[in-house]
Design a protein around this nucleic acid. Structure first.
Lengths: 205, 205
DNA sequence: AGTAAACTGTACAGGTCTGTACAGTTAGCG
DNA sequence: CGCTAACTGTACAGACCTGTACAGTTTACT
């Protein structure tokens, strides 16, 4: 997503080290936290020389930033897959809830611990750029919901906005609780609550 | 809250060091995160000898645990104060939302960063006892809401339980978003949403 | 075959981390 | 006054942290 301007000639070669570092960093950052995970742990587990890490990233902070960006892109990809299976705006809203549930299920095997982006933001100090990345990610999620709700309630844009925020709170709250409990059942119930709110809004005046 | 069995004779003397450590640890753990805050930083800022820290706490993990317990007690105290000002179960539920808003406002000056307990849990690995403390805290919050709802909807206990979980999600989701944005306006809107849900439930069949 | 880029392995600098040791000092109590 | 317990200051052990240096090796493409 960042610099592939050198063209496809080098694209096939330059990947291995950087990609393995990102995959390993994602695993350890999510499982153990950003601060608690050392550079040495990552390079050892990735099977890569430490020099290669600092050839691809100028600092640990930059690796963390790449991790956050990758998580966001990964979320979008899962969401788009879910969205393709839907018909109409009501199902599209619920696809956002399903995307969260997908993450919970995927992480179940290795230890589900909630939203990786929110967890990372929780250990970054006020003012850190990483917190803005996560804030914008959550705003994007709310906007996606709001976009579908705009289609569902075309004559009531104000109500759509309020409902989008309501659903965003439901989603993030359920994710936080689910992360503490280590399983996705809270997310399933949040989806049920969301579906009821959607039906109510569609039936409403 | 832990060991005051030695009686009030020593109670007046033994406090200073332990108390200053807890106050300082709370400030730094909240602002910078648990892992990123070193022992040396805490003892220096508390104006206490490092030996005194290890006389009061066996390890950093125990200090973290004391921090989590203190945060929980602090939350309960704020909540009880809020509860005293209320009349009836509807207002009692909203008092829980007000308690969260109180925290946001109090932390505003030094840097509001969301729920300290949730933030701490976010950087603890799966299996850490601290995560259970936070999970139980959030369950307590939901139970308190559920208790008031049981009074509000005495003939519909099932509905009360579902609504309690719904309100808990609203609350935690709004807190997560508020923490990312650094102010409490999201919490104010969550309170509005909660009030509407309560009115609807009271008017409902 | 030759060139350029990515990659490796290791060693190291300089700092910070948690936790301990130990001798000395302060403060409340009878 | 004298006892006891809390507290102080400093030094240190041993591990781990991020980031750099540098010489050598692999890999891909011409």
């Amino acid at each position: 997503m960042s610099e592939m301007g050198t063209g496809s000639a080098t694209a096939g070669r330059r990947r291995p080290a950087r990609e393995r570092l990102l995959v390993t960093a994602a695993r350890r950052f999510y499982a153990d936290g950003v601060t608690a995970t050392g550079i040495d742990t990552i390079v050892a587990e990735a099977g890569v020389a430490k020099t290669s890490l600092y050839n691809n990233f100028h600092s640990k902070a930059e690796l963390v930033r790449a991790y956050l960006d990758a998580r966001h892109e990964e979320w979008l990809a899962t969401y788009r897959t879910r969205l393709e299976e839907t018909v109409g705006p009501r199902e599209a809203v619920l696809a956002v809830f399903d995307t969260y549930a997908d993450h919970a299920e995927a992480a179940q095997a290795t230890g589900f611990r909630g939203c990786g982006l929110l967890n990372a933001a929780a250990e970054l100090p006020v003012g850190d750029i990483g917190r803005d990345v996560v804030r914008r990610h959550k705003e994007t999620v709310e906007e996606l919901i709001g976009c579908h709700l705009g289609q569902l309630l075309p004559s009531r844009p104000g109500e759509a906005g309020v409902l989008a925020e309501h659903l965003s709170f439901l989603l993030e709250g359920a994710m936080a609780r689910a992360g503490l409990e280590g399983d996705g059942s809270r997310l399933a119930r949040a989806r049920t609550l969301a579906a009821a709110l959607l039906d109510e809004a569609m039936a409403g005046s």
